[in-house]
């Protein structure tokens, strides 16, 4: 087995275990911490796939910023371990059925998917330098428009948050 294959299997095992832990953990803060572990392993996959920009974004935005939001939501909602209401069996059963159906749909869709179109071998489009080149040469206008989007998102957050 080559080095990337070994790394892939190690990362796969860690990511699946920690993802199960996210669902199983009773304490929501533990769920968040395990989700961070999952994100880090997914970052490892991105690096194995030569997609470094996605890896950086995943660490900075998902493991950094989005997780901060999750933690804040947990603290805002004040989810104590004792205060969490016990769900009855009907809800649990409905959840299992819905999740199983989603799994069936996903597996069926992926089995039908045509993998012949995929480019074999490594591409360099995921490198940060190439992405920067494309972004600042061919897609300058969408890039500037995205800053307007950030502006509107920020103002929206202020308007919603400062309702006192």
């Amino acid at each position: 087995m080559s080095l990337p294959t070994i790394l892939f299997w190690i990362l796969a095992v860690i990511s699946i275990l920690s993802a199960i832990g996210v669902v199983v953990a009773k304490n929501p803060v533990h769920s968040v911490l395990l989700l961070i572990v999952t994100f880090f392993t997914i970052t490892g996959f991105y690096i194995l796939l030569n997609a470094q920009f996605l890896a950086v974004v995943h660490i900075i935005v998902y493991a950094g910023a989005i997780m901060v939001l999750f933690l804040f939501v947990i603290m805002l909602m004040n989810l104590n371990a004792s205060g969490e209401p016990q769900k009855n069996n009907l809800v649990k059963f409905a959840g299992v059925v819905a999740g199983g159906l989603l799994l069936i749909v996903l597996v069926a869709a992926l089995k039908k998917a045509d993998t012949g179109m995929l480019i074999q071998g490594s591409t360099n489009i995921g490198l940060i330098q190439n992405l920067g080149k494309v972004l600042f040469k061919d897609f300058v206008l969408p890039f500037e428009v995205s800053s307007i989007l950030f502006l509107s998102a920020m103002i929206g957050a202020i308007v919603i948050g400062k309702k006192d």
């Binding site: 900075i60 935005v61 939001l69 805002l76 940060i128 190439n130 080149k133 600042f136 950030f150 948050g161």
Partner: peptide, 23 residues
């Protein structure tokens, strides 16, 4: 939460600036 939102948005902007700085 508002502060966290600001953090998320400025963080995204940092990502764009990183891609510029590398290239």
């Amino acid at each position: 939460y508002l502060i966290a939102m600001f953090f998320v948005i400025f963080d995204l902007e940092a990502v764009f600036i990183i891609s510029w700085a590398i290239a």
